[in-house]
């Protein structure tokens, strides 16, 4: 009897200790986020007020060294949007088809080979992607651009989109595949039993059933694309101009992230604060994307 009690007490202690460890860790992450927010808004807020919110968000010219300096981030917002949309157009279909292939059409042995390779794709540092982009994508885009428009160095919105399209593949593939796999086999069998072919069963029953998971993967992919910095800087050309569709995609453009990293080293005073304010815009983008993601996942559960 006593023995049991002692053991219970020891267990109690461990339990309480564990709970506190978890609590402290959780508080730590929350504190980190709170501090980042605080830093961003304290650092960038005054700059936005000084420049004026509309001037800042909708100003078409970013010329921090001019006198008077101009701090309009619209070119960068447009750049980020263009690059990301392009990445989605390129990466999402490929990613989803690959996920379907992995989940339903590929032999087990091939899956064992492909899966680690795709995971490896996720682990490659972005600077390496950047190099790949500079050497492999930019020259091809330059040729296309020369053929279609009158010029272009290849370092462009389109190059960045292609590269990011590749970089978001692992995210999209992994999450889409697992959500497709999570769809109960009953749907697939139900469709087969009606005489639908394998491909038809997969595409018209299983994939639609997994749509919220797939959407979530796309949203996460977008998040990755919006936040990517190094690789974009290396291939996008980085001119702070608003791209005009369609030739604009063959011209250089600058993303929000690139804007920060390119100028942070030498920026001072209001210029520096304006860069922090750029980070606020970026933060809002990511925040929005995360809200959408949470919403989708929640909808999936119901």
């Amino acid at each position: 009897m006593r023995n049991v009690k002692d053991r219970l007490r020891a267990w109690d202690f461990k339990e309480i200790l564990a709970v506190w460890v978890f609590r402290i860790c959780a508080c730590g992450s929350i504190a980190a986020i709170a501090l980042i927010c605080l830093f961003l808004f304290l650092g960038g807020g005054p700059a936005i007020i000084e420049i004026g919110l509309t001037n800042f968000l909708f100003g078409r010219s970013w010329a921090p060294l001019n006198i008077p300096a101009e701090f309009g981030v619209l070119p960068m917002i447009a750049g980020s949007v263009y690059i990301t949309v392009g990445a989605v157009i390129i990466g999402v279909p490929i990613g989803i088809f690959t996920a379907v292939f992995l989940a339903f059409m590929c032999p087990k042995k091939l899956h064992k080979l492909l899966k680690p390779i795709i995971n490896l794709l996720a682990g490659i540092p972005s600077v390496v992607y950047g190099f790949f982009g500079m050497r492999a994508i930019v020259p091809v885009i330059r040729n296309i651009s020369l053929a279609l428009t009158d010029g272009g160095s290849g370092a462009s919105i389109l190059s960045a989109s292609v590269l990011l399209g590749i970089m978001i593949l692992p995210t999209i593939i992994a999450i889409s595949e697992s959500s497709i796999r999570a769809i109960s086999k009953e749907y697939y069998e139900g469709a087969l039993a009606l005489g639908a072919s394998h491909v038809r069963s997969v595409f018209f029953v299983v994939v639609p059933a997994a749509k919220s998971g797939i959407l979530a993967s796309v949203v996460l992919g977008i998040g990755r694309a919006v936040g990517e910095t190094m690789a974009v800087v290396m291939v996008a050309g980085n001119q702070a101009m608003i791209p005009i569709f369609p030739e604009g995609i063959f011209r250089g453009g600058r993303s929000l992230t690139a804007n920060i990293v390119l100028e942070m080293a030498y920026a001072t005073d209001l210029h520096r604060d304006a860069l922090i304010a750029t980070a606020i815009v970026l933060f809002c983008f990511i925040f929005l994307i995360n809200i959408i993601f949470t919403f989708l996942v929640r909808k999936d559960k119901n």
Binding site: S184, E186, Y187, E189, G190, A191, L192, A193, L194, G195, A196, S197, V205, P208, A209
Partner: peptide
């Protein structure tokens, strides 16, 4: 096989309507 399954329909133990 698809034609065969069209001729020989099946209803499963657990109702499995498509999520549509």
């Amino acid at each position: 096989v698809n034609q065969l399954r069209k001729r020989v329909g099946m209803v499963f133990q657990k109702p499995n309507p498509f999520p549509q």
